[in-house]
C-alpha cells in the first residue's frame, strides 16, 4: 500500500522501498526508516498534501512523491 491511500488518522508502518527517488531517500534520512511507525494526522482540504507524524516530528509530503515507499496499515490498538 502507499501513503497516499491512507485515510486521515490511520497508522502505518514502512515495510519497504520500491523506488528510491530523492523524496524517498530524503524521508528515510529524516527518520522514515524501515519499520518506522507513522500516522497520517491530516490531509489538506484540497486532498493533498498529507501531514504525517513520526519520531516526534510532523512533516507535510505530497502523496504522489511518496509512492516509492511501501507501507502496511496497522490495525487500531484498542
Amino acid at each position: 500500500m502507499k501513503i497516499g491511500e491512507l485515510k486521515q488518522g490511520a497508522k502505518a508502518q514502512v515495510v519497504g522501498y520500491c523506488d528510491r527517488t530523492d523524496c524517498v531517500m530524503r524521508l528515510q534520512e529524516m527518520g522514515l526508516t524501515l519499520g518506522t511507525e507513522f500516522q497520517v494526522t491530516k490531509i489538506a482540504p484540497l486532498g493533498d498534501p498529507i501531514e504525517i507524524c513520526f519520531r516526534c516530528q510532523r512533516l507535510v509530503v505530497r502523496g504522489k512523491e511518496c509512492d516509492g515507499i511501501e507501507i502496511e496499515p496497522m490495525v487500531a490498538e484498542q
Binding site: T21, D22, C23, L27, E51, R58, L59, V60
Partner: peptide, 9 residues
C-alpha cells in the same frame, strides 16, 4: 534538480 517537497510543520 528539484528538492523533494517535504515540509515541516
Amino acid at each position: 534538480k528539484r528538492l523533494p517537497f517535504i515540509m515541516e510543520l
